[in-house]
Every structure is written in C-alpha cells, then in structure tokens.
C-alpha cells in the first residue's frame, strides 16, 4: 500500500509555477532522498503533502486518505526546514519541546502523563540530548537544536518521517551519525522516510530511492539507476554526474 500518493500535483504562487504536474508514490519502508537545486519546489512539495500548503491542482493521499481529510497525524513525524519556525527566545526546555511531539497522539483535552515520560526519555537518548533536558532550547547550538527537533519528530514513534534539510546545522561527524540513525529507524522499525537535502552523493549512500525535483519530477529511482541514467547525464552533464556518483563510490 502507498503511504503517500501524489497525482498530478500543481502548485502556483503569485502566478508562477512552483510545481508542475508532479506524480509519485511512496511505499511502506521506503527511504526517499528528495533532492534538487534551490527553488526546485522540494519544501513546497513537502508542505503540500502535509497539508500546510494548499495545492492548486492534483490529488495527495496520506495512508490512503486525501490530505484534506487526514486526521491520523500521530502516524507522521515532521522536522521542518532549518530553525525558522520557532522563536529562539522561547522559554521552553528541551524536555518540554520533545514532549510536544506527543500532542498528535493525544485527544482533547491533551495531557502529557507520567507514562509518556519513557517515550520522551527514549527519544532524547536516541538523539543524544538527554544531558540537555533542562536547558532552554534557545541556549543550544544550531546542531543541538536540530537534534532536539529530531527527538520531537520521532517521540511519537511515527510510521512516516518527513525531514526537510535536517543536516544543514550539523558537522560532518554529526551528519554521519544522523544518517546512521535514519538507516536504523528505517531498517529496524520500518519507518518510511522522506529526507530533503542538497547533498545527492551524501544521501545516495543511504536512501533506497532518489526523487529529483526541478519544478517537475526529473528522476525517481535508485541511486545506481541515477548514476546510469542518460536523462540525468543530459541534465547535469557527464562530468557533474560522474563527480556525484564517484564521490558516492569513494565514501
């Protein structure tokens, strides 16, 4: 069964096409690297899938339900792009922020109960932020904040995890650890992952499929097929394609 189904998605903003006739499916257990140049519509596609941006045309289904009618948000974990969506001076501790990832599992009136503590502890342990639990989020470094927000996105044990450029604030070692964690979630817990990044070579090593967007779907398939694709050779030029795939081979 498709976890995500996108059919003929079109998105226009100020009379400009941001996305044109996008169609693709994501199956359970997929690890998708969503890649493309700046302004290619990656974040818009993610926001449309999550119902945060209203598509101009097309149909999007999450777990078989049209996104407009989707209510099972506890099945999804989301890590937004960069750290632009929250006030860095917000007086919240790391534990409070991570706990907020559980709100999607609660019905009105939402309450965090003592039995939820173990889930929060586990998410903080996995993302290595346990020592920071009483610190204010605004007092952490960019990399630490990113790990806290990742903990928030996995605390509800989602079936689908959507991450928008999650590694931008991470150093190379932290980035490798991050990807290793994604692979573990994907393989041991069968979490379906969509990870937006510019680093094609970096994600190629881990993702089961690459979805290359440039306002439309340019390529959708495995990294190996990406490297052999004549369409991508024409798109990038032989030299750039070789650099991407050669770097991947080296690593």
């Amino acid at each position: 069964m498709s976890i995500i189904s996108v059919e003929h998605l079109r998105f226009r903003y100020n009379s400009v096409d941001v996305l044109r006739d996008i169609s693709f499916d994501v199956s359970a257990g997929d690890f998708i690297g969503l890649v493309g140049p700046n302004g290619s519509g990656k974040t818009t596609a993610i926001k449309a899938i999550l119902g945060l941006a209203k598509q101009t045309n097309g149909k999007i289904c999450l777990f078989g339900a049209p996104v407009q009618q989707f209510t099972e948000w506890h099945r999804i974990g989301y890590l937004p792009q960069k750290l632009v969506h929250f006030n860095p001076h917000f007086p919240a501790t790391v534990r409070e922020v991570v706990s907020s990832g559980l709100f999607s599992t609660k019905k009105f009136p939402r309450r965090i109960r003592s039995e939820d503590r173990a889930l929060v502890d586990e998410a903080m342990r996995v993302t290595d932020v346990t020592d920071l639990e009483h610190e204010l989020i605004g007092q952490l470094s960019g990399g630490q904040q990113q790990r806290v927000l990742l903990a928030r996105s996995i605390v509800n044990r989602p079936e689908l995890l959507i991450l928008d450029e999650p590694t931008t604030a991470l150093d190379p070692e932290a980035r490798e650890n991050f990807f290793a964690l994604m692979v573990e979630l994907n393989r041991t817990r069968n979490v379906t992952i969509i990870l937006v990044t510019h680093d094609i070579a970096g994600i190629g090593k881990y993702a089961s499929k690459l979805l290359y967007l440039d306002k439309e779907v340019v390529f959708y398939g495995s990294f190996e097929d990406f490297c052999l694709s004549e369409k991508m050779t024409k798109y990038f030029g032989k030299f750039t394609q070789h650099l991407i795939c050669h770097r991947h081979g080296d690593s």
Binding site: F86, F103, I112
Partner: peptide, 22 residues
C-alpha cells in the same frame, strides 16, 4: 489551562502544531 498544550505548541512552532493535528 484546558488548552495549555495547544497554546504551547502553537506559540512555539505553529507549523509543527498543525502537523500535530492542532
């Protein structure tokens, strides 16, 4: 008090709050 967590989530990160079904 009844909407304490909804207010927290919305004030902290409105986009994430929406994806939490709030």
């Amino acid at each position: 008090v009844v909407f304490y967590y909804e207010n927290f989530a919305t004030a902290f990160d409105e986009e994430f709050a929406k994806v939490s079904g709030i």
